[in-house]
């Protein structure tokens, strides 16, 4: 059972659809009691950093989440904006992030004018360390990205994989029980299904 954190994020339905497809039960909630008993969490997200953080603050569950993630070490997967929110702050706004991974979120600054922002495309990426998320992954995994900002971890070892778009940027982070993917597994065919299945099996 995966608990999807409900704070008004946009891509929830797609995440639910894919979990259902791979036979993983999920609930969407922001009730403290439900979060407390969660065994696995997904923090979805699409949109503006401040909008996301403010909405999450409004649910009043951040303290509970801190305890779940940092003390109880419940596995959590952040997706897209949800992944960026795992960090300290973002150049997109002024709100503080959750601060679970020591990273900042930066705006693309590309010299090549043929490259558009947002980066909206499929990209191949493979992990540069062993990760449960990528266990038995299909060959040449590719994922769908839509983002104008990217994660920049301060500790190299928190980087799980990178992608090249006018330079290398971090596509996923992993630190103990905390996972974050810049891409959208819920929209990435069998590669996304495998990744979500792996997360469900952690």
């Amino acid at each position: 059972m995966i608990t999807i954190i409900d704070y008004g994020a946009g891509n929830v339905k797609s995440v639910e659809n894919m979990l259902k497809k791979i036979g993983v039960e999920s609930i969407l909630t922001n009730k403290i009691e439900k979060i407390k008993s969660a065994t696995k969490l997904i923090l979805p997200g699409v949109g503006h950093f401040d909008y996301g953080m403010q909405n999450l603050q409004r649910t009043g569950i951040i303290e509970t989440l801190d305890k779940k993630v940092l003390v109880e070490k419940t596995p959590i997967l952040g997706i897209c904006l949800g992944s960026q929110m795992l960090g300290n702050q973002s150049e997109e706004g002024i709100e503080k992030g959750l601060g679970w991974i020591d990273m900042d979120v930066k705006k693309f600054n590309l010299n090549d004018s043929s490259l558009k922002v947002p980066h909206m495309n499929w990209s191949n990426t493979t992990p540069n360390k062993k990760s449960k998320l990528f266990e038995s992954m299909f060959e040449n995994p590719r994922f769908y990205f839509v983002h104008s900002y990217f994660m920049s971890p301060n500790n190299h070892e928190d980087t799980l994989c990178s992608v090249n778009y006018g330079g290398n940027f971090v596509a996923a982070v992993e630190k103990e029980n905390i996972y974050g993917v810049q891409f959208h597994p819920e929209k990435s065919h069998k590669f996304g299904m495998k990744l979500l299945e792996n997360f469900a099996n952690i």
Binding site: N17, M18, K20, V146, H184, K187, S188, H189, G192, M193
Partner: peptide
């Protein structure tokens, strides 16, 4: 249709 679309739609 969306519930069967595991790609951007």
């Amino acid at each position: 249709i969306c519930s069967e679309a595991f790609m951007p739609f």
